[in-house]
């Protein structure tokens, strides 16, 4: 137990030890200052020249968003058609078939939006070509899209009065060449030297200890797993994701994958402080995010280490905690830590089966995705947090009877309308989706789909409801993890979750960038004695309260029907 706790404390400490210098480095990259990776500049200039892009042309916030949306729409169509025809494309040694149109629709959106919800199993549902040139490609560009969007926000917060917010392509390209690519290479090398496959040969054949012939899938797994975590993507090479022994062979790879998925989201919070030269502001945000993460993590570890009360009542001892769905080599503490970090950070990879976790843990995992801004995904985590800052500033202004101001600009009706729409969008798409799926389950149980509604749920009752709620929560938060008890590869789930994922990705990028761009154009008001300080612990607590009220309470009734009811039913 103590060793397991020491393991996760070491992992978090290592994460911070890397994230803080990475934040300083990222700020230097995007400010255009000298860094040790400046030797990439000729390569970047070559890419820009063949693309016909002049990064000296500065863009306003609308031009940034148009560029972001345009390139993402192209990638979506490309990914969709590659998946539809993957059996006819090269690099398919295992002879895997094409994806069906509804599955390709879901998968293409899922990887485009950095969600990586997988309604297929990687061993049989994708080829080496699509794993490389669709999934791994989208791992890089979707993470870089989020980072580039965040840098636009940084720039809008920095300059006093301007509509020139740098160049989207410059930010996007540097996010790949200066951050994602170099770190991914280092991680992939560590993973491949620890037993993760790096091979283009098809399935291997071996004889098991009981004499069966087993065909084992492999491929260049280490390269994909590196960017899968670094870019907070989460889509695994294998169906079991990082619970698979070839996708996470030992405790060292577990630490490496865990650290890899946290360093950019946490590093970007510190990058904000270095970029704006407001380190105290960044520390306050980091403090709020860390407090939120710990409030989700501690009950989870307590529940997992304590074991399942239903099993305890049967007189069975659980000295290692609740081990159903967990890997013995990781144990309940490292599994609980991974489950919470992967849901607050929006990676969505798993090293244990979330469906088997204790109801308290399921509750905490869902809360992490429902709040979706305690660190959050690459770039987009802080964009979500920014919405709550705007609302907190507005409410604080009303409380003290002053015009709300943030970073020297007045928050007025237009910004508040956008912030409110974005804050309400997240619960809206999750709860409406869950309501529709519950209706279909009850009223159309025998619909003629690949998986009939009557066969969707592995567990009846409260837990079954949690499986559906989790699926839409994971989709809307662009997380991608799943309560894998849900039979989701049919037209209903593929299409409905596809729409939830795409709405949950782009509108929460458009909203904060629009607010920041509009604010950047406003007259700058110098700080005075009456200005609300945004870098104090009081303001941090105010933001935390806003997050708790808006994000958490919106979901409480739905959570009461799922994990909360299940928890109390276990105690009977």
């Amino acid at each position: 137990m103590n060793t397991e706790l020491a393991g996760i404390i070491f992992t978090y400490a290592l994460t911070l030890a890397i994230a803080i210098p990475l934040g300083r480095y990222s700020a230097r990259v995007f400010k255009g200052e000298k860094t040790w990776l400046d030797f990439m500049a000729p390569f970047e200039r070559f890419i820009l020249r063949i693309s016909g892009i002049d990064t000296r042309k500065e863009m306003n916030w609308k031009q940034h968003l148009f560029a972001l949306l345009t390139i993402n729409s192209v990638w979506l169509v490309y990914a969709f058609f590659c998946l539809l025809f993957q059996a006819h494309l090269p690099l398919n040694p295992d002879g895997n078939p094409n994806q069906t149109p509804d599955l390709a629709f879901n998968t293409a959106i899922s990887f485009l939006v950095n969600c990586n919800l997988q309604d297929y199993s990687g061993e049989s549902g994708a080829t080496y070509f699509t794993q490389h040139f669709v999934f791994m490609f989208l791992h890089f560009v979707s993470a870089a899209t989020g980072i580039a969007a965040l840098v636009v926000l940084f720039r809008a917060m920095k300059d006093k009065v301007t509509d020139k917010l740098g160049n989207f392509w410059d930010y996007f390209l540097k996010a790949i060449t200066r951050i994602l690519l170099p770190i991914s290479i280092v991680i992939a090398i560590i993973l491949s030297f620890n037993g993760m496959p790096t091979s283009y040969k098809g399935k291997d054949t071996l004889i098991s200890m009981q004499g069966d012939t087993v065909h084992v899938s492999r491929g260049p797994v280490a390269a994909l797993v590196a960017i899968k975590h670094l870019g907070t993507n989460g889509g695994g090479w294998f169906g079991a994701n990082s619970a698979h022994p070839l996708e996470n062979p030992n405790y060292l790879t577990n630490i490496v994958e865990m650290v890899a998925q946290c360093i950019i989201p946490i590093g970007l919070v510190f990058a904000l402080g270095f970029y704006l030269n407001k380190k105290k502001f960044a520390y306050v945000i980091f403090g709020v995010m860390t407090l939120g993460m710990l409030l989700l993590l501690i009950p989870t570890i307590q529940a997992e280490v304590g074991g399942n009360p239903a099993i305890a009542r049967m007189g069975i001892s659980q000295p290692t905690g609740a081990m159903e769905g967990k890997e013995v080599r990781f144990g309940p503490t490292a599994s609980g830590y991974w489950s919470i970090l992967t849901t607050v950070i929006s990676t969505g990879s798993v090293n244990s089966m979330h469906d088997s976790a204790m109801p308290v843990s399921g509750f905490m995992m869902m809360m992490g995705m429902m709040i979706n801004c305690f660190y959050g995904g690459c770039g987009v985590g802080f964009l979500n947090y920014y919405i709550f800052i705007i609302i907190a500033v507005f409410i604080s202004g009303l409380m003290v009877g002053r015009t709300p101001e943030f970073m020297g600009r007045k928050i007025e009706a237009r910004e508040m309308k956008i912030a409110s729409l974005i804050a309400l969008l997240h619960p809206f798409i999750i709860l409406v989706g869950t309501a529709i799926s519950s209706y279909v389950l009850v009223h159309m149980p025998n619909a003629d789909w690949a998986v009939k509604p009557s066969a969707w749920l592995a567990s009846p009752g409260y837990h079954g409801f949690s499986e559906m709620l989790y699926q839409y929560t994971s989709s809307a938060a662009n997380n991608g993890s799943g309560f894998e008890g849900l039979g989701d590869n049919n037209i209903f789930w593929n299409v409905s979750a596809g729409f939830v994922m795409i709405l949950g990705r782009f509108l929460p990028i458009i909203g904060p960038i629009a607010i920041a761009g509009i604010l950047a154009n406003k007259k700058f008001i110098p700080e005075s004695a009456g200005t609300l300080k945004s870098d104090t612990s009081t303001f941090g607590l105010m933001t935390f309260a806003v997050i708790a009220i808006i994000a958490a309470l919106s979901f409480f009734p739905a959570l009461a029907l799922g994990p909360i009811a299940e928890h109390f039913s276990l105690l009977k």
Partner: peptide, 30 residues
């Protein structure tokens, strides 16, 4: 392959992104 389904999904992509582009203009004037 069900080409009608494929066409519907491509149309859904176009409409969704058209709405995103419209939302950028909408947020400017809201």
């Amino acid at each position: 392959m069900d080409l009608i389904q494929v066409a519907i999904y491509v149309l859904a992509f176009i409409v969704t992104f058209w709405l995103f582009f419209k939302s950028v203009n909408y947020f400017e004037k809201i």
